[in-house]
């Protein structure tokens, strides 16, 4: 029947340019968010090609207004704000993307096992509940006090904190998929557990996981900026948006760009990631599309 035909999203096997342009037309949010994010990534990682040295201090050119030489002016130590901003993007993106990837991989593995192998479920989920109750900042401080500040330890802290939300999501999808007849059919056909998980359960969790990834990524970027602002994130000599805002906040009235440049970049990056996340949700959920 036309009205009740089941709608199930099936990803196309091959992606072509024509498909991409059609995707952009049908899902503008994905196109805008994804495009913006891609642009930011290119700009950040090509930074050495076009921007100056972000660490170079010039005590005689402190708090300079924007000019042809220093596009965004200079900060209180005479460093090029433009260079620091684009190099800072690297930190934000690296932290955001790696923690998202880490949380996604960890959450996927743990969530699928919790959702399918019922005997582990209770233990895993109680551990996740415990993790969820740890405040991010406290965990970051605790970890950093053990090892000293660094990007890696920051990523670990954020990943641990974000793990439960991804795990819960994957588990709930796995729980609903394991009841599907095609999963039971696979079991009847003699499939071993790893194969059932890999071939029949995992693919169904990917759409929801990608949406959750975007949310985690945006949150990770904000957490990094916040921790760096508080001085417990990235070491102060490394340019990061949080560090920049923190060290320049006293000079807001004299050199507003020293605060606004990283601030606006932070906002735009988070916005891009969130747009992508919303777009993906619409893309994967046919009902959300129809409601619009």
């Amino acid at each position: 029947m036309i009205l009740s035909a089941p709608v199930e999203y099936v990803p196309a096997g091959r992606l072509r340019i024509a498909d991409l342009s059609r995707l952009a037309k049908r899902h503008p949010l994905v196109a805008v968010g994804g495009g913006l994010l891609a642009l930011l990534i290119v700009l950040a990682f090509a930074a050495p090609l076009y921007a100056g040295d972000p660490l170079n201090m010039d005590p005689f050119a402190r708090l300079q207004p924007p000019s042809a030489g220093v596009w965004f002016g200079s900060d209180n130590l005479g460093r090029d704000v433009f260079a620091r901003t684009v190099f800072g993007a690297r930190i934000s993106l690296i932290v955001g993307l790696t923690s998202a990837a880490g949380a996604a991989l960890g959450g996927l593995l743990i969530g699928i096992i919790a959702g399918y192998v019922r005997s582990f479920d209770n233990i895993i989920m109680r551990v996740m509940d415990a993790l969820m109750s740890i405040p991010t900042i406290l965990l970051a401080i605790a970890l950093i006090s053990l090892t000293g500040p660094g990007i890696a330890i920051l990523i670990v802290a954020i990943t641990i904190v974000q793990l439960p939300s991804v795990t819960r999501l994957v588990r709930s999808v796995a729980l609903s998929v394991r009841e599907r007849p095609y999963v039971e059919a696979a079991v009847c056909g003699g499939a071993r557990l790893p194969k059932v998980l890999w071939r029949h359960i995992l693919p169904s969790t990917i759409p929801a996981l990608m949406v959750q990834c975007a949310i985690v990524c945006a949150e990770a970027i904000l957490i990094e900026a916040g921790l760096s602002f508080l001085g417990i994130g990235v070491p102060p000599e490394i340019p990061s948006w949080g560090n920049m805002i923190s060290s320049s906040r006293l000079y807001l009235s004299i050199a507003p760009l020293t605060v606004f440049a990283p601030g606006i970049c932070l906002a735009v990056t988070v916005l891009a990631v969130n747009l992508l996340g919303d777009g993906l949700r619409d893309l994967f959920d046919p009902r959300a599309k129809r409601r619009r």
């Binding site: 089941p6 990803p11 599907r180 007849p181 095609y182 059919a185 056909g189 003699g190 194969k195 071939r199």
Partner: peptide, 29 residues
């Protein structure tokens, strides 16, 4: 002992091709 399920929609993995679906049990062994 094998089973044929009621719902021809939900008993087939929507992401696999017909060939993959019907040869999967053999490939388990």
């Amino acid at each position: 002992m094998q089973m044929v399920f009621q719902d021809p929609y939900s008993s087939l993995n929507p992401r696999l091709t017909a060939g993959q679906i019907i040869t999967e049990p053999v490939e388990n062994f």
